[in-house]
Design a protein around this nucleic acid. Sequence first.
DNA 1: AGAGATACCTGGGAGC
DNA 2: TGCTCCCAGGTATCTC
Length: 274
Amino acid sequence: MPELPEVEVTRMGLAPHLTGQELSCFRFSGKPLRLPVPVTTMADICHIPIIAVRRRAKYILVELQSGKLLVFHLGMTGNLGIFAEDTPRRKHDHLEWRLSSGQLLRFHDPRRFGSVAIVDGNNSKEMEAFFKTSGMEPLSSEFTADYLQQAASRRSLAIKPFLMTSQIVVGIGNIYANESLFDAQIRPDKSVAKLQKKEWQRLVPSIQKILRHAIDCGGSTISDFRSASQRSGYFQISFQVYGRAGQPCKVCATKLRKITLGGRSTFFCPACQR
DNA sequence: AGAGATACCTGGGAGC
DNA sequence: TGCTCCCAGGTATCTC
């Protein structure tokens, strides 16, 4: 499940293969993704050099010399990979481009929660509209306890769904919300209205530590980046609470609990997290 | 306006 | 073995 670290690792893996290349020979499976695939304007981004591969929130931005951006969202099961020219297409390979190197860029997504869009980076209104729901980058210097506390004012929801609200802070999905709250020793169902200053101050570095650690783990596989091996790095991460209901807390051995918040599975240690 | 529910989608696991 | 059922979750959109 791609959250910010998985998207960032994918971006790092793609960048050396895409930068300086040109896209051509676009193919589409015809199966609808979460947003309509911009088939008719795809020619606008072909045969133009790629100058950078960036990330904003959970989006991967392939930036062209013309200023246009080819923007991917991996959704739940999306995967962007580089393949040799003769690699057979697999089921759920929905988008494909040829690179000037001869390699192929493929978007694979069984559940089709992902999306692709073309945004004009020169058009600030268009950019603003596309990213209007994307809040603060959690690894930026502006992401502070004060920012979160301010954003939480006049709100009453639980801290975990609050952290997963992308208008507030981007990139934190269910897994890292659970893990960050364990690290910060805060109960996931605690109302943001009840969080003390010192808890906000613990939470920010916990989130950043967890995300950076995950990027580092995934980043260790970057040197042999292939679509199929992208995920292998994540097996190195052992979660403290996610998916461990009923098992002993790794810190205090108390049995971990599972509850539902905002319709999502939530795991925590009732002793460590208050 | 905030908060919760719902829809989208398929693979995989549990249970029979 | 093979069937059905349920769950996983990011985000847009709805309803209250």
